[in-house]
Design a protein around this nucleic acid. Structure first.
Lengths: 252, 252
DNA sequence: AATAATTGTGTTAAAAAATAACACCAAGGA
DNA sequence: TCCTTGGTGTTATTTTTTAACACAATTATT
C-alpha cells in the first residue's frame, strides 16, 4: 500500500474520522481528487465508511456504540494510543499473554498485527478484535458479563485462569495512589486481576495519567506486584518521583 | 419516537443502508428535507452514521467487518430476520435461555428488547449485543474462540454448561438432512451444542431453508432431539412433508 | 379561552461536495 | 522504441447538503 494511504489509515485510526479538508491540510500539495480516491480505496478495503466530506473508521464507530451501552466515555484517546504503542515493546512472538479489559487495552489489541501469540482475555470485545490476527490463538475466560466495563468475571473465570499459564499480563487500572496501590471499582473484577497477576511471570500495567491520585474501592495490586508501569507524560513529576522512589521501571 | 422514524429505523436495520432516494419513494408525500432531518436525528441517537446520500446502520457495518475476518459471508438476511422474529414468540420473561452462535441468532439477539432474561451464550459478539438490554444477565461460556464462526468451545465451555440450567435453547445449524439430522462443521462446536441440547428443557432450531439438504461432518442432534424447528417458506414442500412426517411443530 | 412558545414541516436559493471526463506523466513490459 | 498501465491533476457538471424563511400544528402559559 502507498505510504500516503498508510498515513491516512493511521490518521483515521487515531482520530476516528478524517475530513477531506483536514487531509488537504495534511497533504498540501496533493489534489483533493486524489485524496478522495484514496478514501474510496480504503473503503473498498473495508475499514472505513465514506461520509459527507470525508470518512470514518468503522472500528471507531463500533467503539462509540459500545460506549453508549456500557457506562464509560472514552477520554484521552491519544494518550491511550501512545501508551498502547509503548506496551507493544513488551510483546514477544510465541508467548502466552493476558489482555485485561478496558479501553487502553483495546488500543493495544488493535495494534497487534500478525504476531504468533497465545492470547487470553476477560473482555469479549477485545477477543473479537484479536481474532483478526490470523496467527493468534484466542482464549476467552467464561463468566458473567459486566455492563460497566464489558469484562467477564465470576467463579468460572477464576477456574479458567487456574488452568492456564501466562508469560506477560497487560493490566488496566481504574485508579492508583501510593497508599492504596492499583484499584478498581468492582470486587469480582479485582479477583480476576489478582489471579492473573499471581499467575503471570511479568505484569505490565497500562495507566493513563488521569488515573493517578484516584482510588477505587478494591485494591488488586501494589507497586511491588507489577514489573512495569506504562503511562503518559501528563503525569506530574512529583507523582513520577514518588513512584520512582519505589520503582525504577516506569515508562512514559 | 415518531412512527415515520421507527419505520426508517427498521428499514435501516433490515437493509443496513437507506439512501435518501429510497426513503423518498417509501414516503412519497414527505419532503426530502424532512427525511434528511429524520436521519440526522437517528444519527444523534447513535445507531446510524450519515453517509453521502443517506445513512448506514452501525451494527450492520460492524457485522460486515466481522465477516471480513471470520470466513462466512452472510446471505439470506431477510429470511434470517423473519426466522428470528418468529423465534421471539418462544421467549418468556424471566427465563434462562441459551443463544448459540451464528448470524441467524445474531438477528434474534438484536430483536431482544427490555425483557428480563438470563442469557447464556457461546458467542462473544452475541453477548455484546445482548448487553444492550439493561434487564438481561449475560453469561458467556469460556474457551477458545474459533475464527470460523466466532464461537467459543473447549473443555472449559463444557464445564461451564454443566453448572447452569437452561429453559430454552436457541440453536443454529449449518446443515440438515433427514438421514444425518442437524450437522455442523466443527467437532468442538458439536460437543457444545450437544451439551446444551441435553441440558435444555426446550430446544428450538433456527435454520434458513438454504441449509436443508446439506450435511456437515458432525451431527449434533436428530429431529427427535429438538422441540421446534423454525425456517422460512423457501423450503420445498417436499422437504416440509418429510419433516412433518416425523414432527408436527415446524414453523415457517 | 386566548396567547405565546415550541416543534415539525415544506420551499427556495445558495453553498459544498462528489462525479465524470479528459489530459498528462512516469514506470514497466513487449 | 512504442505501448500499456496506473496514478495523478484540472475542469465542468451534477448531486447533495445547508441555511433561511414561512407556515401550520401542537403544547404550555397566562
Amino acid at each position: 500500500m502507498k505510504e500516503r494511504m498508510q498515513i491516512i489509515k493511521q490518521y483515521l485510526q487515531e482520530n476516528g474520522e478524517a475530513k477531506l479538508v483536514d487531509l488537504e491540510k495534511l497533504f498540501p500539495n496533493i489534489s483533493s481528487m486524489t485524496l478522495r480516491r484514496d478514501l474510496k480505496r480504503l473503503e473498498e478495503f473495508g475499514d472505513v465508511v465514506l461520509t459527507k466530506g470525508g470518512a470514518k473508521s468503522i472500528s471507531h464507530l463500533s467503539r462509540i456504540k459500545e460506549e453508549l451501552y456500557s457506562k464509560r466515555l472514552v477520554e484521552n484517546t491519544s494518550e491511550k494510543n501512545l501508551i498502547a504503542k509503548k506496551a507493544l515493546e513488551f510483546l514477544e512472538e510465541g508467548r502466552s499473554i493476558f489482555l485485561d479489559s478496558g479501553t487502553t487495552i483495546m488500543y493495544l489489541a488493535q495494534l497487534l498485527e500478525k504476531q504468533k501469540l497465545f492470547i487470553t482475555t476477560s473482555a469479549p470485545n477485545i477477543a473479537l478484535e484479536c481474532v483478526k490476527n490470523p496467527n493468534a490463538t484466542i482464549n476467552l475466560v467464561g463468566g458473567e458479563l459486566s455492563r460497566d466495563n464489558l469484562s467477564l468475571s465470576g467463579i468460572n473465570a477464576l477456574d479458567f485462569l487456574n488452568n492456564i499459564n501466562i508469560d506477560t499480563a497487560f493490566i488496566a487500572t481504574s485508579g492508583f495512589t501510593i497508599k492504596n496501590g492499583f484499584t478498581c471499582g468492582n470486587y469480582q473484577e479485582a479477583e480476576i486481576k489478582k489471579k492473573v497477576i499471581a499467575k503471570a511471570s511479568k505484569v505490565i500495567v497500562l495507566m493513563d495519567s488521569s488515573k493517578f491520585g484516584k482510588s477505587m474501592p478494591f485494591t488488586f495490586a501494589t507497586l511491588d506486584d507489577v514489573h512495569h508501569l506504562i503511562t503518559d507524560d501528563n503525569i506530574t513529576s512529583e507523582a513520577k518521583n514518588k513512584i520512582n522512589l519505589k520503582k525504577q521501571n516506569i515508562l512514559m
